[in-house]
Amino acid sequence: MTMHGTRVYPDEPAGSFPSPPVTFEDRDGRSIVVRPFESEEPRLDALTEMYVQFDPADRAQGIPPTGEKRVRDWLETICADGLNVAAWDDDSVIGHATLVPDVDDPAAVDDAGEIAWELAIFVLQEYQRAGIGTELLEALLGYASEQGVENVWLTVERWNSPAIALYERVGFEVCGAESFEQEMSIRLG
C-alpha cells in the first residue's frame, strides 16, 4: 500500500473497467443501461425521483438525505463537482454511482489524478440483489479512469458485509483505522 494524501492505496492498479454506456440484462431479466450522468433537466428530475422513492432504512451515514428539497440540493452539489453514472430501466433511474472530489475547492482542480475522490453507490430497493451494483460500480470506475482519476476511497458501515464483498470484488482494499465505518481504497491505472 502507498500513501497519497491522508490515505493508503493499493500499490497495483485494479484491472481495467468497461467504459459506459454499458447495457446488460440483470438477474431478473430486466434490460438495464448504465450511462454517464448529465445533470441537466429532465435527467436530474429522474435521479431525484429515484432518491425520493429510496427506502429510508437503506440510508447509510446520513445519505441520501430525505425529502425532495434536501435530495435536490445534495444532488446539485455532487453533480456539479463530481463524476456520475446512472443505471436506467427504460426512462427511470434505478441506480446511481458517484465520485466526489475530496478537496475544499473543486473548481481549482485541473488534474483529476492529483486528488482523491470519494465514492458512493445506491441502487433502488426493488433492483437490489440483481447484479446491478457490480455493473454500476465497474462502469463508474471505467468512466473515472478515462477522466484520469487514480485514487478512490469510500467508507462503508462495518456490518454491511454484502457491500464490503462487492467493493472487494472490484478491487477495493481495506485501508485506515476501523471505526463504525470501514475505509476502503482502490488505485486506477
Partner: peptide
C-alpha cells in the same frame, strides 16, 4: 461529514 456528506464517527 465526508466530501459526499456522509457522517463519520471516529474511534
Amino acid at each position: 461529514e465526508s466530501p459526499m456528506g456522509k457522517i463519520r464517527l471516529g474511534p
